[in-house]
Computed example of a mutant assay.
Amino acid sequence: MNLQATGRRVLISGASRGLGRALAQAFAENGDRVAVHYGSREDDARATLCSLKGEGHVLVGGDLSDPAGAADVAERAASAAGGLGGLDVLVNNAAVNLPHPLADTSYEDWAALWQRHVSVNLLATANLSHLAARRMIDQGAGGRIVNIGSRGAFRGEPDHPAYGATKAAVHALGQSLAVSLAPYGIAVASVAPGFFATERVAHRLSGDEGAAIRAQSPFGRAGTADEIAAAVLWLASPVAEWASGTVLDLNGASHLRT
C-alpha cells in the first residue's frame, strides 16, 4: 500500500458549502489537492475553491444523478489536463434531503421525491465509487473512499424517510465495497453524523427548536462541520486502513447503537 499521508488527489462531491466546504478545507490544510465538485451552486463552489490552502485544486461541476454526468465528473477530476492527474481519495458527500412525511405528501410527489433521493444519495454514491475505485486499481497504489451517511439510517427519519433509507443503503454499500476492494489496498468507510450546524440549517438553531436540537446530545450542543471533516480526514489517512468497513457514529451520544 503506497498511499501517502499528504499530497493526495481528492475528489469531494457536493463541496460547494457546508460540510463539503469543511471537508475540502481539511484536506487542503493537510497538504492534499482537492477537486471541488458542485451540482448547481457554482458561485459557492468557487468560494470554496478560493478558500483552500495550497495550490493545484480544481473545480468540477456536473449532475451526479445522471450516470453519464457522474462519469464526466470523475473523468475531469482525474484528468491530467485540467484535473488532478489521478484519484487517491473519494469522499461521497453530495446528497439531497427534502421533506416528504407520508401523511402530508401526495403519491405523485412521494414517488418523485423517492426517485430523487435514490438517484443522488445512493446511485450517485455507487457510481462515483465505481469510477474512482477503478482508477485506484489501475494506479496500483491503493486508495480511500469515505461515505457521508447519517444517524437517521439507524433511528429513522419520519419526515424524511427516503433520506434515512438511502443513507442506510449507503452504509451497506460501503461495507460491501470494503470487502471487495481490500485486496487492492482500497479502504472504504462511512460516517453517520447527527445534527450539525451549517449555514443551511442555522435558522433551526434558534428558539425552541434550537433548544430541542441541542438537548438531543448530553453535551448540550449541536455538532460542527469541522468535527465531521476531522473524522473523515482520519478515515482517509494511511493509518486508518484497519477501520475499513466501519460506520463511525458522530452524533455526540445523541443516539447509541447496540
Rank of each mutant, 00 (worst) to 15 (best):
M1H: 12
M1A: 15
N2G: 15
A5S: 15
A5P: 10
G7P: 13
R8H: 09
V10I: 14
S13E: 14
A15L: 10
G18P: 00
G20F: 12
A22E: 03
A24P: 07
F27C: 12
A28R: 08
E29T: 13
N30G: 13
N30H: 11
G31Q: 05
G31I: 07
H37D: 07
G39P: 09
S40Q: 11
A45I: 02
A45F: 06
T48C: 10
L52F: 08
H57T: 12
V58C: 14
D63M: 02
S65H: 05
P67L: 10
A68K: 11
A71L: 04
D72P: 00
E75H: 13
E75L: 09
R76P: 00
A78I: 05
A78S: 15
S79F: 07
A80K: 14
A80N: 11
A80L: 15
A81L: 11
L84C: 13
G86L: 10
V89K: 08
V89H: 07
V91M: 11
N92S: 13
N92G: 04
L98V: 14
P99M: 01
H100V: 05
L102T: 05
D104Y: 08
T105Y: 04
S106R: 05
S106G: 13
E108G: 08
W110L: 05
Q115P: 04
H117Y: 07
V118L: 15
L122N: 00
L123Q: 07
N127K: 09
S129G: 13
S129V: 03
H130I: 10
A132M: 07
R134Y: 02
R135F: 08
M136P: 03
D138A: 15
A141I: 12
G142Y: 00
N147H: 15
N147K: 04
F154A: 12
F154D: 04
E157W: 09
E157I: 00
D159S: 12
A162K: 11
Y163W: 01
Y163Q: 02
G164A: 09
G164C: 03
A165D: 10
K167M: 04
A168Y: 03
V170G: 00
H171C: 04
A172I: 02
L177M: 14
S180L: 06
P183Q: 03
Y184Q: 09
G185F: 01
I186Q: 02
A187I: 03
A187R: 01
A189D: 00
S190A: 15
A192P: 07
G194N: 01
G194S: 09
F196S: 03
F196Y: 13
E199Q: 11
A202R: 11
H203T: 02
H203V: 01
L205S: 04
L205F: 14
S206V: 13
G207C: 01
G210A: 02
A211Q: 08
Q216S: 01
Q216L: 14
P218L: 06
P218F: 08
F219C: 01
G220L: 00
G223A: 06
T224R: 11
T224W: 06
E227Y: 12
A230S: 13
A231E: 10
L233Y: 10
W234T: 09
W234L: 14
S237Y: 09
V239I: 06
V239Q: 15
E241A: 15
E241I: 08
W242E: 10
A243E: 03
S244D: 01
T246K: 02
T246A: 14
V247Y: 01
V247L: 05
A253W: 14
A253K: 11
L256P: 05
